[in-house]
Design a protein around this nucleic acid. Structure first.
Lengths: 196, 196
DNA sequence: TGCATTACAGACCGATTGGTCAAGAATAGA
DNA sequence: TCTATTCTTGACCAATCGGTCTGTAATGCA
């Protein structure tokens, strides 16, 4: 965030590490559900330090969303494009992730999906960031889909990618409510059959 | 909420009407995103009247969710079971609703889905209510699915119902972010093919 | 050793939060 | 008409909200 050897007292904390903790809070509790006091407690930083490093609360939220994009979304997109794994397995892994997470008692879901429900309709910058994430995932899904069926047109690929992304998002949302995610698992295979 | 001819000064507002306005607020802005002042402004009621009629803020939220269940969820479930309409068309209408709403500039999405992302992980009563809604929809989806393919076992029906519900929820969430919902529409037909 | 610059700790700010209370008004039944 | 009961209004409450400011500590450079 700042040059290493700039004048003045050096920062005593790691920006990325702090931002990751902030991200976790917003991820689980939403924008309005997180207070500055909670952010202070989670990061161990004072208000002034937080404001100097990340700006106001809204700015922290957007930076957290960016962080999620840079790490999680990009990571998922990379995995979907990985030529070292069978196309079917890549899509299956993507669709199964929400189920596996819930089975591991992780109910945080997907920050992108949560942000979409929580803030996308209320803040244009959040809206743009969420759209960017969804677009990245949809585009990444086209890669294994194309490998699965070479005959598909670009439009067909886009259709199927958006359908799978919808399914993924829905699973993430349903998992948040604690429904028996075991009932979602066989649906993954039905979806895979449909896009083959 | 109260007997018509009970002693004391009669209520000057309609409980259900007020609750509907409260529901709209929570639906669009989430639990923490709504303040008592906003509820007062939307309903035209004083705080004390609101508290007397619906209890505290959390209780208002839960009653709003109940209202949504009683009206919207139950209505959707009934439509899915309606023997007067072709099974395919019923499912299509269900899956298309998120798209049609977004195309009509309605970005509120589905209260159930929003509540799942927003509060289900934080409040057990909300969690239970959300699960109840999802279960009702999944169960209703089995009716047209069974008509579509008589050979499907109970387990197969459940699988497909949950898959379609996942797709529906995902579409609702994606629509909230303002993505081009036109790209979701052809996916409905792919999904219909898959469950036939 | 100074000086400019930046970061830290925590006091401090007005505004708003969810929630309560007291007083008066409206009703039903006696 | 009186009384018991309930509702409405608006003042009131402590707590918390997001955000700022001040004084001091730590650094690089001259």
């Amino acid at each position: 965030m700042r040059d290493r050897s700039s004048p003045g007292r050096p920062r005593e904390f790691d920006d990325t590490e702090a931002l990751r903790k902030i991200m976790t809070l917003f991820w689980k509790q939403g924008f309005e559900g997180v207070s500055l006091s909670q952010i202070m407690a989670a990061t161990g930083l004072q208000k002034a330090s937080l404001y100097a490093a990340f700006g106001d609360k809204r700015s922290m939220y957007l930076k957290a969303l960016e962080q999620y994009h840079a790490e999680t979304v990009t990571g998922a997109a990379r995995a979907l494009k990985d030529p070292g794994v069978l196309a079917t397995d890549r899509i299956r892994a993507f669709l199964t992730a929400p189920i596996a997470a819930a089975e591991n008692q992780d109910r945080s879901g997907c920050f992108l999906c949560n942000a979409s429900a929580d803030q996308a309709g209320l803040d244009v910058q959040t809206e743009a960031q969420v759209q960017r994430g969804f677009t990245a995932l949809a585009s990444a899904l086209e890669t294994p889909l194309a490998e699965l069926n070479h005959a598909l047109s670009r439009a067909d690929l886009e259709t199927r990618a958006h359908m799978l992304l919808g399914l993924y998002s829905g699973f993430r949302i349903m998992a948040r409510s604690g429904v028996d995610v075991g009932k979602l698992r066989p649906g993954v295979e039905v979806a895979l059959q449909a896009v083959r």
